[in-house]
Structure formats: structure tokens, C-alpha cells
Design a binder for these strands. Structure first.
Lengths: 221, 221
DNA sequence: CGGGATCCGTTACGATACTG
DNA sequence: CAGTATCGTAACGGATCCCG
């Protein structure tokens, strides 16, 4: 079971690719970085993946210790990253930064869910979060709920509803992409293309600061 | 020409993988980070790659603007990274860090040349170099010559002979791997398993500091 | 209905051989 | 030396079926 060609080379990069270099594997990890997910949920987010491939990849991720399968109640299996799996966030972040240089081309499939957005924003936020920031934000994109929590210089974005957020930030997927790609001014985006409901005073400036830093991060090519 | 399945997904990570996610592509980039190389030289370093695959991948890298082919004199073609291609160094560095957690397993092929080592050390050095460092080091591993130049907080390792180095550091591939994997103490490595010929005074402490920082970088998992 | 397993046509890979 | 050509094999992709 679980194939995958191995490079069998004595090099850390090759060893990394033997674990996470297979087709789809990094995208599966990407979606898992947004929190535990079920098989069908992953399949929806990874437009076009075949069921057998997703099953194979998940099996290998579990074998390699990057993910774990937790059977919750009545066989409803949940996949989540292990500590080792979470270490891939830096790789994923650098891929996102590199990929942000290119325009989307040709016919593009819309993802079945926005886990991809959650992770991309999450790893970016984690890079720019400062120690003095501390808040819980509900981020709503095209009606899908995400939960960004920042504390102690660490940021984490989960694809789930926030219970008691300090603020609620709402926008659309296309506007978010536009601002990421530099085609929409952050100013316009913040004032006209999104809404920010502040529930807890003084947290909004921290959130705005974080968003500003993220766009700057992607800007310096 | 130049196939490669495309994810066609609206996500920066998928866009990155459409460029550099194909099998072998990241390893080719790895070797190119050690400086311009010829077809056969790349083929030697990438143990096991088929000639047609290497040709296909190089064509695609050129098409995508990550590499360029410079016909020098009598048809002796050289491949080198473009500015865009060099931007992959962060991705490669993070892959190396992640891969360094795993032990080499099973039957492993020895690389035909040590470009892989040059790049791995080079990207690591680039992360830990400080602005006050400035030297040219000749690094010799198993008789293969590399050139590490550090200046203005930037480090670059090339797979070539240094012309006028400030120091010459010699060791073996297996000892280098052992110290990277934490199986050999840096102290033992530096005093017994390698030689350091200082040609220019005061540069040796800078080099030692750099090496210390690299091993520490890989240590904090 | 969620979570796969099985089957099968298509595509990419890998090894070897061959050519300018 | 720098690839191209060929071909068997392995992996992918899509669909269907199955089981709790």
C-alpha cells in the first residue's frame, strides 16, 4: 500500500520531498493547516483530486507521522496534523510567497471550500505577528467562517467559527485575491470592500496592523 | 512539449507547485543554486534521472522564466538561474530544514557530484550570515571544490574553485552529514575531522562562527 | 451520506538505445 | 556532449461500486 517513488538520495531536500513532494501532498497539508478535517471536506477543497489518491496520500501522511486519524464517534474519522506535520508550515509559507508572483492563468477551478485561504492567511499572519498583539478575529470570506487567533507573537487561522471574537472582518474571495496580488489598494479594500465590526475596543488597530504587514510582506517581491 | 499536469487552482501555493512541484524540478533547482551547470553535470548530480526527463524539466524551467540557457562558445550550453529562479532559495532552504529531521533510510545512492552539498550549505549560510562577516572561503569536500563568499549579510556557495580564498576548509561528505544530523559533535568535527588553513588573519573566527550558527539552526528542530 | 475500495483508460516516468 | 526516440511500467484521473 502507499506507493510513491523515492529519490533515495543522501540529501535533506530529497528526504523532505520523499515525504511531502508527491503530487497533491502539499495541497493536502495546506488544507490540514487550517485545522482538522474530514475526508469529504478535504476532497471538496482539493478540486479535482480523485478519491483513491486522497486516500493513498492520507495513508502515507499517517505512516510518515505527519498526520493522524482520529476516529471520533460513530466512525466519523477526522484527519489532523501531528506536531511533525505542523513543521511544514514554513515550507508552505515560502511556496505561497513564491507562487504569489504569478498570475492565475487560463481556466481556473473554484475551490469547493476556502481552507486554502485560511492557511495562506494563517501562515502569513504567523510571520508578521508581533509579541504585543493579542486578539481573536472572526474572518468571514464569501460567507465561510474562519478563526484567526493571535497571541504571544504566534498566529493561527482555523477553518471554523470563532466562539467569542474581538472583531468580525468580512470580505469576498475575489477582493482578497486582488489585494494579495496588488491589483487592489489596501486602502480601498479596507474601507470599501470589506466590513470590520469591532466588538472589543482597541483590538481593531492590532488587526489592521496585521493585515497591513501581510500585504507588505507579499509586496516586496 | 513540456507536459506537467496543472492544478489550475486559484491559490498561490498551487501556482507555485505548477512551476516547481513536478518530480525532479526542485532537485534540479537545488543544483542550479550552486551556480551555472551543464546538462551532463546536472545529470551526474541527480543520480537516477533519465535524460529525457532532465531535458523536459529544463525546457519548462526556461519557459517559465526560472532558468536560462546560455550557449557559450562552440555549442557548450550552460544552464543558470534567472533572478526569478533564485527566488526559490527560501523554499529550498525550508525543505532542507524539514528534511534534516529524517534519517536516511534503506539503500541510498551516492550523488555523482556534491552540488547538493554546496546548495544546502549555501542557503543555510545565507540565513545565518551577519552583516559584519566578510570573507571568501574555499570549502573542499571529498576533494570537490566549493566557494563560499560572505558579504553584507549575504552568503553564496558556488560549486567552483575559489580563486583567492581567505581560508581553506576541508572535510569529507560523511563527516559533514554526521555533524548535520547531530551524530557528530561540532567540536570533534572541527578539531579532528576537518582541517582549516587560514590564509588571511582574523577570518577564521568569522568562518567558525558561521559554521556554529548553521549547526545550531538545524538543531532547534 | 460519509469514507473509502476497485477497476480501467490515460498520462507521465524510467531505462536503454540512438543520433547530431 | 547534449540531447532525442522508443517503449515497458508505474502513477494518475475519473467513475463506479460497496459497506457501515
Amino acid at each position: 500500500m502507499a506507493k510513491s517513488r523515492s529519490y533515495k538520495l543522501l540529501c535533506p531536500i530529497a528526504r523532505a520531498l520523499d515525504r511531502i513532494g508527491d503530487r497533491w501532498t502539499l495541497l493536502i497539508l495546506r488544507d490540514l493547516h487550517a485545522g482538522p478535517a474530514r475526508f469529504t471536506e478535504l476532497q471538496k477543497g482539493l478540486t479535482g483530486i480523485a478519491a483513491n489518491l486522497l486516500a493513498e496520500r492520507l495513508t502515507k501522511l499517517v505512516e510518515d507521522g505527519l498526520a493522524r486519524k482520529t476516529e471520533s464517534t460513530h466512525g466519523a474519522s477526522l484527519y489532523e496534523l501531528t506536531g511533525l506535520g505542523k513543521k511544514t508550515s514554513d515550507v508552505i509559507f515560502e511556496l505561497a510567497v513564491f507562487g504569489a508572483r504569478f498570475q492565475a492563468e487560463g481556466v481556473i477551478a473554484t475551490p469547493g471550500n476556502l481552507r486554502t485561504v485560511a492557511t495562506t492567511l494563517g501562515v502569513a499572519a504567523n510571520r508578521v505577528a508581533t509579541a504585543d498583539m493579542s486578539f481573536d478575529a472572526a474572518v468571514v470570506v464569501d460567507g465561510e467562517h474562519m478563526h484567526l487567533s493571535v497571541k504571544n507573537g504566534q498566529a493561527e487561522m482555523r477553518y471554523e467559527k470563532a466562539r467569542s471574537p474581538d472583531l468580525v472582518f468580512s470580505t469576498t474571495y475575489s477582493d482578497l485575491l486582488a489585494v494579495m496580488e496588488g491589483e487592489l489598494e489596501l486602502e480601498t479594500f479596507a474601507t470599501e470592500r470589506s466590513t470590520l465590526d469591532v466588538l472589543s475596543a482597541s483590538k481593531d488597530s492590532e488587526f489592521t496592523e496585521l493585515m497591513t504587514r501581510i500585504t507588505e510582506l507579499l509586496k516586496d517581491e
